[in-house]
Design a protein around this nucleic acid. Sequence first.
DNA 1: CGTTAATCGAGACGGTACGTCCTGTCTTCGG
DNA 2: CCGAAGACAGGACGTACCGTCTCGATTAACG
Lengths: 225, 225, 225, 225
Amino acid sequence: MKTTDEGPPGPLVSAAAARRPGRPRSDQAEEAILDAVFSLFSDGATYDGLSMEMIAAAAKVGKATIYRRWPNKEALVICAIGRRLHPEKEIRVQGVSVREDLVYLLELMRGHLQDQCTGAAYDVLNQASVGNPNLYRRYFEVVIEPRRELYREVLRRGVADGELREDLDIERAMLMLTSTMHAVTRNSPPSGPVGREFSEALVDDLLRGAAEQQALSRSGGLAPA
Amino acid sequence: MKTTDEGPPGPLVSAAAARRPGRPRSDQAEEAILDAVFSLFSDGATYDGLSMEMIAAAAKVGKATIYRRWPNKEALVICAIGRRLHPEKEIRVQGVSVREDLVYLLELMRGHLQDQCTGAAYDVLNQASVGNPNLYRRYFEVVIEPRRELYREVLRRGVADGELREDLDIERAMLMLTSTMHAVTRNSPPSGPVGREFSEALVDDLLRGAAEQQALSRSGGLAPA
Amino acid sequence: MKTTDEGPPGPLVSAAAARRPGRPRSDQAEEAILDAVFSLFSDGATYDGLSMEMIAAAAKVGKATIYRRWPNKEALVICAIGRRLHPEKEIRVQGVSVREDLVYLLELMRGHLQDQCTGAAYDVLNQASVGNPNLYRRYFEVVIEPRRELYREVLRRGVADGELREDLDIERAMLMLTSTMHAVTRNSPPSGPVGREFSEALVDDLLRGAAEQQALSRSGGLAPA
Amino acid sequence: MKTTDEGPPGPLVSAAAARRPGRPRSDQAEEAILDAVFSLFSDGATYDGLSMEMIAAAAKVGKATIYRRWPNKEALVICAIGRRLHPEKEIRVQGVSVREDLVYLLELMRGHLQDQCTGAAYDVLNQASVGNPNLYRRYFEVVIEPRRELYREVLRRGVADGELREDLDIERAMLMLTSTMHAVTRNSPPSGPVGREFSEALVDDLLRGAAEQQALSRSGGLAPA
DNA sequence: CGTTAATCGAGACGGTACGTCCTGTCTTCGG
DNA sequence: CCGAAGACAGGACGTACCGTCTCGATTAACG
């Protein structure tokens, strides 16, 4: 997530961890900065109404301590939002069925988008990334794609388990689920706030088509006869 | 779209035209400004990397000449984009089947969103929505909803014709089509630029589920036999 | 005195003054800035304890308004001090004799150097110019040399009038007067504060040598008689 | 010259040397720092263009190793220069005449002031005087006054020998010589670098007035006759 | 010979100022 | 009154130092 530095947090020779010389960077400062970003966003700050100097002041940190970690505001905000959005690591989707897993993921997404704070984060990022392809690209890589991958995994598992049609276009299915949820939660009218039933209906819509082949083959098994 | 002044740019009664005193504003300057905005965007400028001073310089115009017409950068950019977005009035969808009509609408949408300029238009207008609900609502009413209504009409016609399941959730189907298309065209990776086949696949996905009942009833009709 | 810009304040074609386009720079702002510099110095600020941001704030002026006129702090401070030290234009030295004129100039200098404010200005500049040749050179050109020229003029007049030896080294005489006065006023011990009698003694010391030839020729003039 | 810590670097009672515990400070590092200061100055660095970080880097030393020895840049630079300024102890002026002795002293002074490094020393120490009266007083007592006393001694001897007027103001004569030499060597334009002839002319100027009485009495001795 | 304690290079820390740039307004002139 | 031009106050940007601090690694003399 760091942008300024450096190479491989990857596995190094044996133990010892190859400590860099000099005083190590303060994790405390890092957290304070990230927290400050969110606290300021929650207080209604917009992306460009939010200045590095405000952040530094709020985090009680020198500006250099920020710039040592992120090269600019864009990288910082993306990283901050990404972090808030990223307890993905612990998201466990080992549900019993494709339907339940997808509903679970959609409900998670709905929770995020309808939440005061993370919802605003989305808006702010979308706003800022208009005509700012770099910001958007990174946002995409860091935030969007990892989430999408979760959907793909469930769908792939469904195909493998035989729960879904073998020729299902996983990408399109994933897009249909996520983008529809996004539209219905981020575009105010006319949908109004939706609930769990929307996630379920969305998945059921998908399954109705995606499981059809089996249905057909089941029933179609009779046809040749 | 003008924000600063004025009343109706529409046709005025009789002659005289309610001329204001003094030198009239130069249409030439206005065009030069709008052209400069697009030319700069096309040259890869980002939204906030694009400064009013750049625009004024590129248009060979004084800054005040811009601010006399639009109150700020946001208004200027939205207005500039709005120009490129207008000629939607004459969409006709009298297709032969639900599938063809939906594909036609999606292809129209894809053309807009994949266009360098009108695509950016959507993004900027989405930006405007953040913290400017009134503007967004108008944009929604004037641009988004009329488009959505076209989809609803086709779907309703499909239900009436018996081409689609009777209990189809038209709203959700419309959302699925439009939002997926939006996502796939506005979110660069990993989808890459899509073509007509995507529209067709999208509609086919929908139909597969939406027409299922008939399929089932067809096959189900056989079962007892 | 301006450093940032521009060409010829020299004589331009005919009248009309060749006004540059755009809004002219505010003389009011310029004065406010210069006044702020002195007011801050008088409040005990040192050269590098004095920041451009303090100056801008004190003058109620944007930083850019300062940087539009002077390229950096050095140029600004030199200019400011030079201006305070420069009511030289109205210094009139048309005294009756070389002695009286020189004493007048030395008293003026003593007044400056012993003055709370301008004395501090000297210190500050001397301090800042240590190892900062550029600062010092400009300070020299703008402040020191014009003052020295006044001494040279008096001495040249004295030579022309026959009051001083024809072969007097004017440069050295000027240096002797000014540097001794400088030393005795700026170097605290052991001299202690001096008064008018010091200026007079200094000039008399000079004259004793510089007028000697005449005295000798006068007395020698008698010999042939 | 050290400011941070400690007592007497002078010779301590008996043996034992009052060793402090722990690793002793590296003399090597100390020299490297001082050398770096001079090397950077010689490479054209200005006083405030010279940063502690540059020094540390040039000396291949940690910043703390500098700050452990000197509390700030001022102290470091003054100390560094002091090293180059010391070996004055053995000046001998047993010349044959007042003129030759004074010229010798002035030439010594000129050598110092025109030297790249010791010349800068004076400037920096003058800097230190501003806002640091105690330091300056010591500098004055230890460096300046001893030098001045040499001039006074020569002048007093001249008076005693009858070479100079009995009522010569020795203090003023000394000041005239030293301050003029200081001015002409430290103030670059327009004097330009001067040579031995300047020292001689300066002394001759002084003598012309200071020996006048004899000259007058010689010539004047004729008059009454 | 191992403990102890201050040193070392390195570099991060909270601050502060720098000089540049941009925003949206204001002020000049000529058309 | 509009046009270009550009100065205005304000404020954020990202850089560079300051003087302090915290690391792990040395380097003596003491025990």
